[in-house]
Each structure stands twice: as C-alpha cells, then as structure tokens.
Design a protein around this nucleic acid. Structure first.
Lengths: 339, 339
DNA sequence: TCCTTCGTCGCATACGTATGCTTGTCAAGG
DNA sequence: CCTTGACAAGCATACGTATGCGACGAAGGA
C-alpha cells in the first residue's frame, strides 16, 4: 500500500540501498542521483518505515515512561518535561500508566520496542529493576527508587525536606502534630516519614502513631486523613502531608468542614506542584525542582543508552522550603473544634 | 544479545516457525513439542521481538495520541482514559504532546509505527487530517475537530452548552456580561463563543466586543482576561469562560485581587474537569462526560482500524449545566470595584 | 496392498531498511 | 600505456517474526 524504498528505487532507476543512502544524506551519492531519488520520493509520498529501520539498526528511538494516573496532578509534572526532553533528543515517548511498576508486563518492556525506560512508580521490593538490569535494558529511577543500587537514579533528598517541615512546625510552637503519610512501599513515602520523625525529635517532639493517617498519594487519602485526624482529642494543630496531592486533599476537606487554614490548622505539603501556588490554595510546601529532576534523569538515561557500560550514577537534589499561606502558630486556646 | 526464536528453536530441536506457532498457541503443534518449546523459551528468557512481529504482520499495536501540554489539567482527562481503553484492547499509547497538531511531523505519524491516531488538538484549517485520510491512516477527532467531515469524530455540543450558560447568566439578571474566549482556530473555542452570543441574544443581551478577552486555553490567559475585563466601566458582573482552565485562572486571579466570587462576580466555565469540583473552587460549569467522550472515540478508532472501509461516524454528546457556587445574581449597586 | 486423510513440522519467503563488500568507471599520475 | 586511487552505485545479506505450502509419517479404510 504505502510506497517503500524499493518503489522509490524503481522510479528513480537506482537500487534500494542507494535510495536509503540518498535520503539519509549519506556521503557517496552523486548530487544528480540524490536529486533524482528525492524527486521520486516526493512523487510517491515516500516515508521510510520506522519498523524496517528499527529492525535493521536495532534502535527504536522510543523510550518507555512508567507512571501512575495522569489525573493525579503530580505525574504530568514528570511526564510532560520527560516527553519534551526526549523529543528534543529525537526520541518518542511511550506511556505505561500502570499505577505500579510491578503491574507493567515485563515482556512489554523488553520486547525490543524500547531503547530505554524511565521508572517513576517503583515500589520497594519490586523485582522489575533487577530484571531489567539482568537483561541489559537501560533504565533510570526518577523521583522514586528501590533497593537496587546498581542503577541510575535521580531523587530528591526527602529526608532533608521533611526535616525542614518539622523545623518549621516546631518553630511555630505546635505541640500537637499530625501527619498524613504516604505508602511505606514507596521510597518517597518512607523517607519523608523518617525525616519528619527525626526532625520532630530534634525539637523534643514526637509523632504519635495515632496522630498519623496513611494512604496512597491521592486527593481522597488526604481528605480521609484530615477527617480522621480532626476526630482526635486533642486534635493536631499542624499537619504534615507527605506530598502536595495529599495536602491539597486535606486542605480542601478542611474547607468543606469549615476548618480554617492556617488559623485553626497548619498544613504543609511536599513537592510544590503548580496547583499549590494558586491563590485559592496558597500551600506552604517543600519545593522540588521537578524540571531539573527530570532533566537529570533524561540525561542519565540517554547517556546510558549511548554507553551501556558506563558507571552508575545516583543524583540527589536538595529541596527547599516555600513559605506560603497555610502555616501559622497554633491558636491560643485548645485545638480547633470542628462543626 | 537477547535470545531470538531461532535460539529457542535450536535449543528445543525444532524449526523457528514451530517456535512461533507453539508460543502463540496456534493449533497444529503436538503437545509434547509445545512443551519442549516452552521450556526452551523459559530457559533462555525469550521474549518475542515486537519489531520482527510488527514487520511481519504490518500491525504495531500502538496508537498515537496527539495532545497538548499535560500540565494543562484538561488533557490528562483525555489521555489517561484513552491509555486505559487502548491498553484493555491490547494497544500501547505513544504520546505526541506538540501543542498543535500541525507541529507534529506528519512523517512521524505515518512511518508505519502506529496503527491509529487520536487527534485532540486539531486546529481549523489544519492540513493534517486530510493528509492522514489520503494516506489511509486511521484516526479520530476527539473533543476538537476541523472542517474535514469525511472522518470519525466525537465532540460535545459546544453550542448548546454555551446557550445553557447564557440562559443561566441572563436568568440571574446580569446585564453587563463579559467572556474570556478561546482561540477562534479551535472548534471548541469558536462554537462556544457562537453559542454564547446566540444564547445571550435570545434574552435581548449582547456580548460587546470590548467585554471579551481571548487567549489560549491556559490559566495565564484566564488571569489576564479577568484583569482586563475588570478594568472596564462598567465592569461585567458575570463572566463566561470558554473552558474550566480559563475559568479557574480567572477565579484565582479574582481571589488574588480581592474580588469576591460570586458576590461581586459570577464566573462560569465549561468542561467540568475534576479541579472545578474542589471546595476551594466550587465552579459552576458545563459538565462534559469526558469518560464517555473518550470511550466513544476509542471505540470508533478501534473499529476503523479493524475495518478501514466502514462509513464515517460523527458522535455529538450533550453537555449539562452543573450549578455550584460561582454564580449569583448581580450585586444591587453598580458593578464591583476592585482594590 | 494401495490410497486417502489427518496431524505435524520444516522450507521458503515476505515484511522494509541499513550496511559491508564488491564492482565498475573515470581521471590523474608515473 | 599501465597503474593507482577516488568515487559512485549495486549486490548480498542481516535484522526477527509470521505464514503459505509442501513433505513426511502414521493411521485408517477399501
């Protein structure tokens, strides 16, 4: 149906290899021949088959991005700049939005249709990274990682960021502190929890087990977490949420319940996604430079594709506290009631 | 490097075609042979090359999704369910996030690496759809379309939805009405504008040219639009925004400027993306059932791939007004001042 | 005994491109 | 006049899988 390089060759009166060389601008083709080939290609509307090309070169110029639901507003902040980076480098992005990396069929990732993979949803204990490693399939951890250390990774210093939050909350004078934590099966969730506890301890405070809620990094978990923590007596006057999506969920639920932020309740998030800076949320949070995170990850992956034998690299970036409007000292009286 | 079907054949003591048939569960392979092949494949960790397979079958089981920036919160509502739909049907999604369909290199879409394409960012006058049509490349318009009528399309009844908004605003008693419109080069932008003007006219109202702002479907355009319209005298008491992203941008800018919604200003959007239902926004808007929109589009595309000769189908879905908290009658006095 | 039928498998080839090697031509230099 | 080299283009083949067709053997019936 569609024209092939053989059709072009026939029309131009040359051989198929000459067509291949001429259209790719390889040297060793006479100018006159090259133009005849280009004319023939234009006449036939010829477009080189990526399939044939990939099979011959064993390069597909496609990169897989394993991410979670895109309607979770965190992931677009990774996927979009990844896509743009790879596009500039001549690669296409194939989306694997499987919620968890272990749900991605391993075979789909190593069936030869990808040159490399970005993992953003890896769980602790997932066998996928090791399997990719054994197969020699280039990949990079982005934002999340797991126990596998013989791999490229670009992550935030989650522990440090959480300590910053603990310092802020303790410094404001809060004594009843709660947290909406992420899954322990994620490196981000567990590191942010550890850091927050450690930070509180530095101020003689403790995160009581009953003052914690835990759930997936989703709005609904933030909402549920806020409801359950407000039911405590005394209710916490400050809440650390393990990421912005949780924090925005909690913030929104507080609004719904008539709890004022920050007057009645301090809420601090982590990530600084774009929604958090909108005036209606104005969330105090830990800023992660996701653009730089993504840029580093894309670079590492492209370098590994170019040279599979190069030494592994683990890049840790420092986050930064962003003070907006969702934090304040605790109210003078007892903890906030709730209507 | 990676094992091929020839390696498996050698180990199992059969021919390569027998390996192919055995592993795909084709009939005509003896049970004992099949098991020997499966054992050999397992031993070698064999995964069939998608490239070889695609070249032989001329089917790639990949679908291209042409969308805009994913950080624009509208697009994830299309891309995610598309991805899930196609995955269930055994297809992978390749992302082309190029802002405009005309910026996507045509050759990339017809180089044989895709079985079909979803267009969500088509501009009026774009030559891409016709070119795809001429090449016999299956595609479907989703949400946006252009002049090309010999194609599958799934769109909302934008005109009708905009009339609903006009009815609401006029019914509330607003006389000074403004609008933040989308690009005329998009079918959604122009249809929503036309419908809104027609709806207002039905109530003896008019949308003055100076009471309109226009920009891309982005937060920033909503913010800028609100600022410029509030500078008018008299300032509009009600604003129709051509989609939710514009409306949320306007709403957020109003908050920033100290303009109260809905007391000082009514704002109505279009699309009903998930952010709009959050308590902090609580946006009155026109609900589009994007899940159904996407489902219909995915179905149409898969049917066309299966049968390229079938008649074209254009599905128009009816939107529905959702009354939340951003609309109210105009304030008794003159239009709102702004601090 | 011979022919038919069926089940099983291999042979040959197609899919479309890239690339190493060889051939052929022509001009320059000895 | 022969040799050498550069340049241009073709030949052969590789990449990995799928599939039409033919071959072969066993089983069954006439």
């Amino acid at each position: 149906m569609a024209a092939t390089s053989h059709d072009v060759a026939r029309l131009a009166g040359v051989s198929q290899p000459t067509v291949s060389r001429a259209l790719r601008g390889e040297p060793g083709v006479a100018l006159e021949t090259r133009q005849r080939v280009e004319d023939a290609a234009r006449t036939l509307g010829y477009v080189a088959s990526q399939l044939g090309r990939s099979l011959a070169t064993l390069r597909t110029r496609r990169i897989g991005i394993v991410a979670a639901e895109l309607t979770n507003p965190f992931y677009p902040h990774l996927v979009e700049p990844l896509h743009d980076h790879f596009e500039r480098a001549g690669y296409r992005s194939v989306l694997y939005a499987e919620r968890e990396d272990s749900r991605v069929a391993f075979a789909e990732l190593v069936d030869g249709s990808l040159d490399g993979i970005v993992l953003t949803t890896t769980l602790m204990g997932s066998p996928l990274p090791k399997a990719l490693l054994q197969r020699g399939m280039p990949f990079v951890f982005l934002n999340r990682e797991n126990e596998e250390r013989a791999a490229d990774a670009v992550v935030m210093d989650n522990d440090y960021g959480a300590v910053l939050v603990a310092d802020l909350i303790a410094g404001l004078g809060h004594r009843h502190v709660g947290a909406v934590l992420g899954p322990l099966s994620t490196s981000t969730g567990s590191q942010r929890e550890t850091g927050f506890r450690r930070g509180l301890a530095g101020h003689g405070l403790e995160l009581l087990e009953k003052a914690t809620a835990r759930g997936p990094f989703a709005f609904a978990a933030g909402r549920a977490g806020l409801r359950s923590l407000l039911a405590l007596t005394p209710a916490p006057t400050a809440l650390f949420c393990a990421n912005d999506v949780l924090a925005l969920g909690a913030l929104d639920e507080a609004t719904r319940l008539g709890v004022r932020v920050p007057e009645d309740l301090t809420i601090v998030g982590f990530d600084d996604i774009s929604m958090s800076s909108m005036a209606r949320f104005n969330l105090t949070t830990v800023h992660c430079d996701l653009a730089r995170l993504v840029a580093d990850a894309a670079d590492l992956l492209l370098k590994r594709i170019a040279d599979p034998g190069r030494p592994h690299n683990r890049i840790v970036q420092q986050p930064e506290l962003i003070l907006r409007g969702s934090h304040a000292p605790p109210a003078a009286g007892p903890g906030p009631g709730h209507s």
